[in-house]
């Protein structure tokens, strides 16, 4: 598990509010016992309808690492298939106006920062990316800023997920298991465990 401090790479804008996880990965692709192959199916219905004009199909954005979205991105279902599909397409970080909570948690658990920025910053960045698809942007989680061209702006994220990325502890499983004794002592204080199974 690596420490994640700065992500640098080309960006891809995806304009639109309330893009839900059913759009990110339609339910029919959840009929699998693995997360394999989801990268090809990401946004598949939106892409079909956009007839080649969806950001994820435009040649200039192939190989991009940083996705720039608008408000309430990832709302809806808890399916981790959604971040998995985005990750498998090649995305390593997401900047947006706001994120749905379960989606954000799923990204964090996979070492993918979801950072928010002011709506005007997101808009500027999306416009700049439309004009400069080949130029890299930097997402700096230590300084909490995003840098592009000659500009920079503040980014925000919860301190918990941020620390987990910075210290390389975003895969929580091992960490949680270290506290076995405390887990059992907490359980012993819960009256219902005695009567509810």
């Amino acid at each position: 598990m690596s420490q994640i401090e700065t992500i640098s790479g080309r960006g891809i804008p995806l304009v639109g509010a309330d893009i839900d996880t059913d759009r990110i990965i339609p339910a029919r692709f959840l009929r699998s016992i693995t997360f394999e192959g989801l990268g090809q199916q990401v946004f598949v219905d939106d892409r079909t309808q956009a007839n080649g004009q969806h950001s994820f199909d435009l040649p200039q954005y192939q190989g991009a690492k940083i996705l720039v979205v608008n408000g309430n991105f990832g709302c809806g279902s808890s399916r981790e298939h959604a971040p998995q599909a985005i990750i498998k397409w090649g995305i390593q970080a997401i900047v947006g106006e706001s994120f749905a909570e379960i989606f954000l948690g799923n990204c964090s658990a996979n070492g993918i920062p979801c950072v928010t920025a002011a709506p005007e910053t997101v808009k500027q960045l999306q416009t700049w990316l439309q004009e400069n698809p080949q130029k890299a942007i930097d997402l700096d989680l230590a300084a909490m800023e995003v840098r592009w061209g000659d500009s920079s702006a503040a980014i925000y994220m919860g301190e918990g997920p941020r620390q987990m990325l910075l210290t390389g502890t975003w895969d929580t499983c091992g960490q949680l298991l270290q506290n076995r004794d405390r887990i059992e002592s907490t359980a012993s204080q819960l009256p219902y465990l005695a009567w509810s199974h």
Binding site: L176, R180, I183
Partner: peptide, 16 residues
């Protein structure tokens, strides 16, 4: 919760 968190609950009965 997502699937990584399902893993965490199965393994530790806890979540971060």
């Amino acid at each position: 919760i997502g699937t990584s968190q399902v893993r965490d609950v199965l393994a530790s009965q806890t979540l971060a």
